[in-house]
Amino acid sequence: MNLVTETYNRLVIKITNLNKWFGENKVLSDINLKLSEDENLVILGRSGVGKSVLIKCIVGLEKAEEGRIEVFGNDIQQMGEFALNKLRKNIGFLFQGGALYDSMTVEENLLFPLKRNAPDLNEKDKNELVEDVLDSVGLLDAKLKMPSELSGGMKKRAGLARTLVLKPKIILYDEPTTGLDPFTAQGISELIIKVKKRYNTTSILVTHDMKCARTTADRMIIMDEGKIIARGNYKELQKIDNEIINGFFR
């Protein structure tokens, strides 16, 4: 089964009329979104407006009650477990805290998905790939460290390396700079750009850090109370006269 269809017109993600509730609380309201190949889309918004829920829906970790999410032309909501898992190999996800497996070293964290998703690769190739990816995120020296020995920034870089090892076509970043000092946050933002160039990835980046958004975004959307309230690039959004939007640019 070829889940990544070439005929999909360079459109990698298409979301149509997406609605999601947690109990009686509507967290996503009528979301419509398109993402083209090689694009870096930043989703800005205050905490709790549904940004993370949206990208979790894209990867199938959350299920929306209404609407359609197409990734490479496949409707995520309708896919069976096996097909979804196969598609997920093309989608990387960087969690807020890195989500490293705490019983494994950094190297084992990278080898874990690799062994299960690329069984044909021999040990030497796997180790070379792991070292190459760790080198690209600047963590080669930390490969034998346990996650508890890493700083916040290193955990995020290790999480990104674990995502990159499967060579995904799309990467979803959930608050990549949250909880980091400004210097480390800037380093992560630059790393996101570097990864995009080196691995030709399409990305969605969820953040409320304007500096990170400015560094990484080709295009931005701003969410509030589960809805998309504005779209455009940095300069276009800056001109909009809206209290919430202006709050990000102050």
Binding site: K56, V59, L61, N85, K86, R88, K89, I91, G92, F93, F95, Q96, G97, A99, L100, Y101, D102, F112, P113, R116, N117, G159, R162, T163, L166
Partner: peptide, 17 residues
């Protein structure tokens, strides 16, 4: 603790059951 630190979600999205 794996669930609350999103390690289980991380497994799921990387194609591991």
């Amino acid at each position: 603790s794996m669930r609350v630190t999103e390690q289980i979600d991380a497994m799921e999205v990387s194609g591991v059951y």
